[in-house]
Simulated assay, not measured.
Amino acid sequence: MEAATLQKRLGSAMRERRTALDRSQESFADLIKMHRAYYSAIERGERNITLHTMYRVARGLGVSVKDLMEDARL
């Protein structure tokens, strides 16, 4: 599977979790201390994020990295 496809699937899973929490991208990015534009690019699948960044996002969403990976079917 192509890297871009993996990134888009992961970003989509993050977006679904975030919207289920009724949080805007801006408020969520503030929560995890990340710039909103950078977080937005992650959700669009435009960034190849590090494991550390994935951990920060998962923690902000109240789930494990494993849960995010499963949501993205990775």
Rank of each mutant, 00 (worst) to 15 (best):
A20K: 15
M34D: 00
D67K: 08
D22Q: 09
L10N: 04
L21D: 09
A4G: 11
G11Y: 00
Y39M: 02
F28D: 00
A41N: 09
R36H: 12
A13Q: 02
R73K: 14
A58V: 08
D71P: 11
H35N: 13
S24I: 15
S64I: 06
Q25C: 08
T19Y: 13
I42S: 10
H35T: 09
V65S: 01
I49T: 09
E2Y: 09
D30I: 02
M34H: 05
F28W: 11
A29R: 09
R59P: 00
T50Y: 06
M69Q: 15
H52T: 13
E70P: 06
K66C: 05
M34K: 12
E70N: 08
R47C: 06
M14G: 04
V65F: 00
A29S: 06
I42V: 13
A58I: 11
R36F: 06
G60K: 02
S24E: 11
Y55H: 14
R9I: 01
E43H: 02
L31P: 00
S27K: 12
R18C: 01
L68D: 00
V63E: 04
M69L: 15
D67E: 15
G45Q: 05
A4N: 14
R17I: 04
L74Y: 03
D71C: 10
E43K: 03
G45E: 11
K66I: 13
N48H: 06
K8A: 15
R44P: 03
R23N: 06
R18A: 04
R15Y: 10
G62N: 10
R73F: 15
G11W: 00
A72L: 06
A72Q: 07
R15K: 13
Q25S: 03
V57F: 02
E16D: 14
T19H: 12
R36V: 08
M54V: 03
I32D: 01
Y38R: 07
R56E: 10
M14N: 11
V65H: 02
A29H: 01
E16T: 11
S27G: 00
V63Q: 03
A13L: 02
T53N: 10
I32G: 02
R36D: 04
L51A: 12
G62Y: 08
R73H: 14
G60M: 02
E16S: 11
Q7L: 10
R59T: 12
K8S: 08
E16L: 14
V65R: 06
Q7P: 02
L61R: 03
Q7I: 04
Y39E: 03
A37W: 10
D22W: 07
Q25W: 13
R17H: 15
D30H: 07
A72M: 07
D30S: 01
A13E: 11
L61S: 08
H35A: 12
L61P: 01
R44K: 07
K33C: 08
L51K: 11
A3Q: 14
A4C: 09
D71F: 13
S64K: 08
S12Y: 01
L61N: 07
L61A: 10
G45C: 09
E26N: 01
L31N: 04
G45A: 13
A37F: 03
A4M: 05
